[in-house]
Structures are given as structure tokens and as C-alpha cells.
Amino acid sequence: MKKNFSYIEKISNYLDIATQGDEPVFIYGENIDNGSRISGLASNLIGTSTRIIQNVGNCELTHCGIGFGIMIDGGNAVLYVKQLDFVLLGLDQICNTYNYIRAYVDPKFWGSFTIVAIVCDQGYQGAQSSFNNPGDLSSLAGIPVYCLNSGVDIAKVIQSQLIKPGFRIICISQNNFKYIIPEVSTIYTDSDNGIFKYRDGGNVTIVSYNFSLNKAIELSEYLDLQGLGSDVFHVNFIPNLDMGAIIESTKKTQKLIIIDSSRGIIKFGDELLSSQEIRSLQPDALMLTRRGRNNSELQEVSENMVIDNLMVLRFVLGSTIE
């Protein structure tokens, strides 16, 4: 009987598989081989002659620099980070050192550096420790950031991106850890694993960012029940990503809904809406987001975005129902 894997089991399995090849890789992080092994994320990892597993101290800025040092020297590094907040400590390296590498180091010398970070979105822990805007890191440093949402993107992103010349961050939602993730299949994936299309329909285009795919699919299923079909996409935070598939869909539906669970004030969805291609189509657009503009959002709030289905239905139908 086929085992149904939870989100975290699936991710840790793929991380294990992706680092078993002949290519040497240095995998490091705090508690990577101790205790819960980073909430189970590293539970499968066993050191071999080519896969070095190293528990390290609490110095995230240096960990980021070490990853870039290994990359400059042509090696492969994967840094596991328990909380996305910790990555903030490494921003100098992520911005400045990677800029240097991109500008001056011939790509033929590049190794690989990947940060795998858990976004602590599982519940209110306090005003700190809840940074959930990995798209901001992408915008700040001009780097690819992937948010793993479904079984398909877990497999594709980890297999194709974990060890690959260059740098990226792969983010995991702690809120999803224990869930058995639905086996949704994709209709379309671009070559960068930046855009995944999950559903096909003619009435509305729904674009998910961050960890919003479940919400997007739930919304699409609700609209299905109302006799309205939707194209559903998940988009990763990748600078200069070709958005052609979404533009084509919007041209067809003339209605665009963007769902983004992050608290960042400026979002990649804003860039999509303000793009020349989308503006020339003049679609009806609805942003379902949290903006993090108010101090009250630092107090105890639900991590789950609540979407008002009726309001969305009105939007799709052009406000013709009460």
C-alpha cells in the first residue's frame, strides 16, 4: 500500500535523495544531527564520503559567508536554517557577496549554495520569530526564492535547484509540516520551476505567492461549485521571471486574483499588476493579501488568511449578486 507522506516527510526525503549523488556536498546547520534535527527536516541525512553533515554553532552571518566561500571555491554547500528570521542575520553576505560573485567570478568556477529555511508560520509565537516574507529577500538581493507548496513543486524544485551552480533560498512552511499534502498535478511548469499551473478554467486567473497555494485551490474549488472555472498558478519569487503563461491566462479571463500570505508591504504581485503587459490588458484585479502595515499585526493574529468567498464570487461575476 502506498504511504501518504506528510509535507515535511516528503521534503526531507527529497533533500536526502538530492544529496546522494557523486557530487560532493557540505550540509550544515545548527542541530542538524542532534535533537529533532531541525524539526525533522534533516532526519534522513547520514554522512557519507561525499555528503558531509556538520553541526555548527550559532553564527548565521558567518554560515552564509561560508556557503559563499565554498561556492567561490567551486564546492557545493547546503545550509539548513530553523527559522527564516535567522537568515536576516546573513543579509550582508546574501546581498554583497553574491553580487561580487555574479559580477566578477567567471561562472565556470561557481559551485552551488542553497539555504533551506523554515518559515515559522505555524501559530503566533510573539512579535518576533514570525518573518514570513521570503519574497522580500528575493527583491532585496535579486535572488531566486522558492516556497514549497505541493508535492509536485517539492520534487521539482529540490531535484533541479538544490545543487546547481549559483545561489538560491528554498523555503518551507512549518504550518504545513504535519499535513498530508494533496497529490495535485501540474498542467504546466516553466523551465526555471518559477511558475506552476495547477488548474485550468476560463473565468478567472488565480495567482498564488508565498504559501498560498492551498488557499488558491480551495478558492478555485469553491468557484467550480458556482460554475466558474479558474486557471490556478503558483509563482515563486524569481527576479525577471517570464510571466507569459499568466499574461496569456489573464488575456483569456480578464479577471486576475492574487493571493499572497506574506506580510510584506510591497509584493511581487504588485510588480505583476504594474507590468506593462498586464496593464495593457486592463483586467479586473483583486489582491487578497496581508500588508503588515500596522503595529496591530504584530500582536496575536491568526497565521491563516481568511478569504471571503462571497466577496470573491462578486468580483468574478462583476458584482451582480447580493
Binding site: 560532493p24 557540505f26 559567508g65 561560508i66 566561500g69 561556492m71 554583497n96 557577496t97
Partner: peptide, 28 residues
């Protein structure tokens, strides 16, 4: 790079961690 200078940083202290990464890779 061809004369062994792999990195020069204008950010104070930034090159230390990068150098440690290169040394880590050499150790591995």
C-alpha cells in the same frame, strides 16, 4: 583569481567568513 586572490570585499569583516568557507571546502 589566477594569482590566488579569490575575493576582496568592501564590507568590513565580510571577507572573513568567505575565507573560512574556502578553507572549509579545502578541508572537505
Amino acid at each position: 583569481r589566477d594569482v590566488g586572490i579569490y575575493y576582496s570585499s568592501s564590507i568590513l569583516g565580510n571577507n572573513l567568513a568567505v575565507a573560512a568557507g574556502i578553507a572549509m571546502n579545502r578541508k572537505n
